[in-house]
Protein backbone atom coordinates (compact mmCIF):
# COMPACT_ATOMS: atom_id res chain seq x y z
CA UNK A 1 0.00 0.00 0.00
CA UNK A 2 1.45 3.34 -1.02
CA UNK A 3 1.69 6.53 0.90
CA UNK A 4 -1.34 7.91 -0.91
CA UNK A 5 -3.64 5.12 0.06
CA UNK A 6 -2.37 5.30 3.59
CA UNK A 7 -3.35 8.91 3.69
CA UNK A 8 -6.62 8.27 1.96
CA UNK A 9 -7.49 5.43 4.22
CA UNK A 10 -6.16 7.04 7.35
CA UNK A 11 -9.53 8.09 8.70
CA UNK A 12 -10.66 4.48 8.46
CA UNK A 13 -7.73 2.94 10.22
CA UNK A 14 -9.11 3.64 13.64
CA UNK A 15 -12.64 2.37 13.18
CA UNK A 16 -11.45 -0.49 10.99
CA UNK A 17 -9.07 -1.87 13.58
CA UNK A 18 -11.83 -1.33 16.08
CA UNK A 19 -14.07 -3.52 13.97
CA UNK A 20 -11.37 -6.13 13.68
CA UNK A 21 -11.02 -6.13 17.43
CA UNK A 22 -14.76 -6.44 17.90
CA UNK A 23 -14.97 -9.27 15.39
CA UNK A 24 -12.13 -10.99 17.16
CA UNK A 25 -13.95 -10.58 20.43
CA UNK A 26 -17.18 -11.86 18.93
CA UNK A 27 -15.31 -14.81 17.46
CA UNK A 28 -13.80 -15.60 20.81
CA UNK A 29 -17.07 -15.29 22.66
CA UNK A 30 -18.75 -17.54 20.06
CA UNK A 31 -15.95 -20.04 20.61
CA UNK A 32 -16.42 -19.84 24.35
CA UNK A 33 -20.10 -20.57 23.93
CA UNK A 34 -19.38 -23.45 21.59
CA UNK A 35 -17.11 -25.17 24.09
CA UNK A 36 -18.94 -24.34 27.32
CA UNK A 37 -21.16 -27.14 28.58
CA UNK A 38 -22.13 -25.41 31.84
CA UNK A 39 -25.49 -24.06 30.60
CA UNK A 40 -26.28 -27.44 29.05
CA UNK A 41 -25.62 -29.23 32.31
CA UNK A 42 -27.80 -26.69 34.08
CA UNK A 43 -30.59 -27.43 31.62
CA UNK A 44 -30.18 -31.12 32.32
CA UNK A 45 -30.43 -30.57 36.08
CA UNK A 46 -33.50 -28.42 35.59
CA UNK A 47 -35.03 -31.12 33.43
CA UNK A 48 -34.38 -33.77 36.06
CA UNK A 49 -35.92 -31.58 38.69
CA UNK A 50 -38.97 -30.96 36.50
CA UNK A 51 -39.46 -34.71 36.21
CA UNK A 52 -38.92 -35.22 39.93
CA UNK A 53 -41.53 -32.68 40.97
CA UNK A 54 -43.95 -33.85 38.29
CA UNK A 55 -43.92 -30.79 36.03
CA UNK A 56 -43.25 -33.00 33.02
CA UNK A 57 -43.97 -36.63 32.23
CA UNK A 58 -41.61 -39.38 31.18
CA UNK A 59 -42.12 -38.94 27.43
CA UNK A 60 -41.39 -35.26 27.62
CA UNK A 61 -38.29 -36.02 29.68
CA UNK A 62 -36.96 -38.52 27.18
CA UNK A 63 -37.56 -36.14 24.28
CA UNK A 64 -35.84 -33.19 25.94
CA UNK A 65 -33.02 -35.32 27.28
CA UNK A 66 -32.24 -36.38 23.72
CA UNK A 67 -31.99 -32.72 22.69
CA UNK A 68 -29.68 -31.95 25.59
CA UNK A 69 -27.44 -34.94 24.81
CA UNK A 70 -27.22 -33.73 21.22
CA UNK A 71 -26.07 -30.31 22.42
CA UNK A 72 -23.53 -31.93 24.74
CA UNK A 73 -22.13 -33.95 21.86
CA UNK A 74 -21.86 -30.82 19.74
CA UNK A 75 -19.89 -29.09 22.49
CA UNK A 76 -17.63 -32.13 22.74
CA UNK A 77 -17.04 -32.03 18.99
CA UNK A 78 -16.13 -28.37 19.15
CA UNK A 79 -13.81 -28.90 22.09
CA UNK A 80 -12.15 -31.67 20.14
CA UNK A 81 -11.78 -29.45 17.07
CA UNK A 82 -10.43 -26.54 19.07
CA UNK A 83 -8.05 -28.82 20.98
CA UNK A 84 -9.64 -28.20 24.40
CA UNK A 85 -10.01 -31.76 25.63
CA UNK A 86 -13.11 -33.34 27.10
CA UNK A 87 -14.01 -34.59 30.53
CA UNK A 88 -15.23 -38.16 30.51
CA UNK A 89 -12.89 -39.65 27.95
CA UNK A 90 -10.42 -42.39 28.79
CA UNK A 91 -7.97 -41.40 31.51
CA UNK A 92 -4.93 -42.77 33.24
CA UNK A 93 -2.88 -41.73 36.20
CA UNK A 94 -0.50 -38.97 35.20
CA UNK A 95 2.92 -40.58 35.00
CA UNK A 96 5.16 -37.56 34.95
CA UNK A 97 4.81 -36.49 38.59
CA UNK A 98 7.60 -36.94 41.06
CA UNK A 99 5.25 -37.40 44.02
CA UNK A 100 3.78 -40.49 42.49
CA UNK A 101 5.40 -42.85 44.94
CA UNK A 102 3.28 -44.48 47.60
Amino acid sequence: MGLLSSILLAPFTGPWSGTMWTLDKVQRSVEEQLIDDTPIKEDLMNLQLALEVGDIDDDEYVRREAEIMQRLREVRDWRERLGKGNAGGPVRVARDREDESE
Binding site: V91, R92, A94, R97, E100
Partner: peptide, 8 residues
Amino acid sequence: KLKLERAN
Protein backbone atom coordinates in the same frame (compact mmCIF):
# COMPACT_ATOMS: atom_id res chain seq x y z
CA LYS B 1 -7.61 -34.79 43.50
CA LEU B 2 -6.69 -37.59 41.17
CA LYS B 3 -3.81 -36.84 38.91
CA LEU B 4 -5.38 -38.15 35.76
CA GLU B 5 -4.50 -37.37 32.22
CA ARG B 6 -6.09 -38.17 28.93
CA ALA B 7 -5.12 -41.52 27.56
CA ASN B 8 -5.30 -41.55 23.80
